[in-house]
Design a protein around this nucleic acid. Structure first.
Length: 464
RNA sequence: GGCGCCAUGGCCAAGUGGUAAGGCGAAGGACUGCAAAUCCUUUAUUCUCCAGUUCGAAUCUGGAUGGCGCCUCCA
């Protein structure tokens, strides 16, 4: 079988054929850096990482571009028209640039802990304002943009998609219900390309442009930057499902409108949300679960990665306490098995072809990671395989799973002498059948965060 | 108001016409001084409910109920 993806463009699973074999241009929507990302965000980034690793695994040459949105979006959480970057700035008494730098760093710290590969090119919106201006000018020259009330708008009436990507019925739009309607628009579906008239006072991030001193609309950065680095047509564009109706529809309209080349992007892949019992995890609602919080609660970031892999990227993932606990447990077992296989494998064997084939097939089937994990467990439990073969297989699988088993080292740290002596004393007590003293010592060590296991090979200890 | 998605054991979750993957948990057993870890075994006659199509439905159709998302902030 060959690689297949569910393409949002046609809402069906399609064979993946890159524009120029074996190269793949991949653009993934990056973070808006006005606050910490939450674990729901990271579900998407983990999906994109698995996608990229799968493409690598299958022999494609991927060029991965990701944007950093460091220009605030137009509308605020309360729908009153405030800029997120500037809200963040005011909240923390910093400039928008300081805010952006701080949260960008936080983002990449988190993704690093989740073993998410950094993009080959990361591009900041603020570094590409000239590219955006050029693109807007291009749209203007093709008659697809108009100026009204000081702002430049994209004219959707002048550009009709040949495919109904978003499946939005624009005729039955209920505009002005959630946010105040912009009376300057010709059609409710028009969107701003360039602002000179901000709805609010004291906007700090501004640039000179042919239309006046101002700042770009939200959607234009992705079109401008992706085309700059990947060409006017490229293979894959990813994001969360929430981007389908508006952000990506607008991107398509402005990109195809500017170049006249259709389709702009061949495959659109969208990741479903992580769902909590309480509320949708949303940055704007204030309360959200960050990776740091997860770590404070004692969970390994890679357990969260494992959890994301147990569900298909296109289905909502139910997140609750037992879900992450289950995942942590499973991941720890997998890790232990991996580390023992590593220890017991003196020479690297050759992975079993049948399991490798099954694993590859699962991923080729629109990235079925739950199926892929089932195959991993199946191989590990297979009594017909030697440890060398299993370890070789696991190394291969891990290229996509991304836990980093191959480079991981089992903690070989030494225990303080005091504890070392307690363990020795306990061994002596056990030999003398003084089990109450032995159990007492085991409890003392437990309080100090060390568990003991009396295995046939001797005492093993582990830090909690 | 419009549009889209989903409903599988205690939990997470694959499977989308041929008779329910996998992980966690739980139960029993082996091992152990007892534990822990590990290993072995068991754990959904059934896929929210009601009709229908079919030789055959978790999978298709209609309806009901419940949940989620989008309609210019969102992964």
């Amino acid at each position: 079988m060959s690689l297949r993806f569910f393409n949002t463009l046609g809402r069906k699973v399609e064979k993946f054929v890159p524009i120029e074999m074996p190269k793949v241009g991949l653009y993934t929507c990056g973070p808006t850096v006005y606050n910490y990302a939450h674990i729901g965000n990271y579900k998407s980034y983990i999906f994109e990482d698995v996608l990229r690793r799968t493409l690598d695994f299958l022999g494609y040459q991927v060029k991965h571009v990701m944007n950093i949105t460091d220009v605030g979006h137009l509308v605020s959480d309360e729908d009153e028209g405030e800029d997120k970057m500037e809200i963040g700035a005011r909240r923390e008494n910093k400039t928008p640039w300081e805010i952006a730098e701080f949260y960008e760093k936080a983002f990449f710290n988190d993704t690093n802990e989740l073993n998410i590969l950094p993009p080959h090119i990361k591009c900041k919106a603020t570094d590409h304002v000239q590219d955006m201006i050029a693109l807007i000018a291009r749209l203007e020259s093709r008659g697809l943009a108009y100026t009204s009330g000081g702002n430049v708008y994209f004219d959707v009436e002048k550009f009709r998609n040949t495919y109904n990507y978003s499946k939005l019925d624009t005729a039955s739009y209920e505009t002005g219900k959630r946010i105040e309607e912009d009376q300057q628009k010709k059609s409710p579906c028009d969107f701003v390309l360039w602002f000179t008239k901000s709805k609010f006072e004291g906007h700090l991030m501004n640039w000179d442009s042919p239309w006046g001193y101002g700042y770009p609309g939200w959607h234009i950065e992705c079109s401008a930057m992706s085309m700059k680095y990947l060409g006017e047509q490229f293979d894959i564009h990813c994001g969360g499902v929430d981007h389908i109706p508006i952000h990506h529809s607008n991107e398509i309209a402005q990109s195809e409108g500017a170049t006249g080349k259709i389709p702009w992007v061949k495959y659109w892949l969208h990741s479903e949300f992580l769902i909590t019992t309480a509320d949708k995890m949303s940055k704007s609602s204030g309360e959200f679960l960050t990776l740091s919080k997860l770590k404070e609660n004692g969970f390994n970031p890679l357990s969260f990665r494992y959890l994301c892999l147990t569900a298909h990227y296109r289905s909502q993932l139910q997140y609750n306490d037992s879900a992450i606990e289950n995942a942590e447990q499973s991941y720890n077992r997998l890790l232990n098995i991996a580390m023992s296989l590593k220890e017991e494998s003196t020479n690297i064997g050759k992975a079993d072809e049948e399991y490798l084939f099954q694993f590859r097939s699962a991923l080729e089937d629109d990235l079925n990671t739950p199926q892929a994990l089932a195959i991993v467990w199946g191989m590990l439990r297979d009594k017909g395989l030697t440890n060398e073969v299993k370890w070789a297989g696991l190394i291969e699988f891990d290229k996509v799973l991304g836990f980093g088993f191959a480079i991981m080292e089992k903690d070989k740290e030494l225990l303080p002498l005091e504890i070392e002596n307690l363990i020795k004393e306990r061994e002596l007590s056990r030999k003398n059948k003084d089990y109450s003293r032995a159990d007492e010592i085991r409890n003392i060590l437990l309080v100090k965060g060390i568990t003991l296991q009396d295995t046939p090979q001797g005492v093993k200890w582990e830090k909690l």
